[in-house]
Amino acid sequence: MTDTPEGPVSAGELVLSLRGISKHFGAVSALTDIDLDVHAGEVVALVGDNGAGKSTLVKILAGVHQPSSGTITFRGKPVTMPDPSAALTLGIATVFQDLALCENLDVVANIFLGNELNPLQLDEVAMEIRAWTLLNELSARIPSVREAVASLSGGQRQTVAIARSLLLEPKLILLDEPTAALGVAQTAEVLNLIDRVRDRGLAVVMISHNMEDVRAVADRIVVLRLGRNNGVFDPDASNQELVSAITGASNNAVSRRAERRRAEREQIGRGQTQEQRP
């Protein structure tokens, strides 16, 4: 594999750049000609309808799938990621939607899976402390790190998965639906965490269906539709713009309601001006 630049990323550095990425599964084109840039200290939200290719794109970045064509440039050098460990070595950490935890192992073992301290005589005490530190940074509500993951709730598992992705001090974190299974408080915590991660100068790519969450943390919103780029938006973009980019239709429930609201506001405004007039 190509050696990559070591050391901290400089602010605003172009960490990841995709050009013309395509992925075919047999006759199905999951992705066609995807371009994507992610800078250090930036949260890029990847939004799109079901089947838009978001998860496929994340899996390519994580080394789970290999692109059929196109180039991936990581920190200025073209890279290939034949397997997930290659992505991890580069500094790309991923939290998958299905979390990919081993239910038969405890929380500590899951967080350190593949990166155990002291391989010939596992340092359980040091690993447990680091696990608690990571979990406390997340304000996690994990009852015991020595329980098997099978006994944790969905939200707790999400927290464990995120804690695990932070273990290796990655340069880029991919979050696939990080808030989907979380309660209100935990969602807020995860969004806070994403902010904190960005402030530390890391690049974050996050997939979400929740426009509120996206707007809360994203610096840019990249829309995918049917496996193609369908526009890049500012977080200030209106819901209507986003939804029409995602669904490809301007006439939908969101746009109709927005239209109705605007009409109502205008009417009220006109009424008020009329009342003020005399």
């Binding site: 994580a62 789970v64 397997d83 997930p84 460990s85 991890l88 070595t89 991923t94 998958f96 990919a100 935890l101 081993c102 239910e103 038969n104 192992l105 073992a109 899976l113 593949g114 990166n115």
Partner: peptide, 15 residues
């Protein structure tokens, strides 16, 4: 143990 518990998770963890 990890491979026996969840092969895909083990693979994604870089094992």
């Amino acid at each position: 143990t990890a491979v026996g518990g969840n092969r895909e998770a083990a693979r994604r963890a870089g094992i």
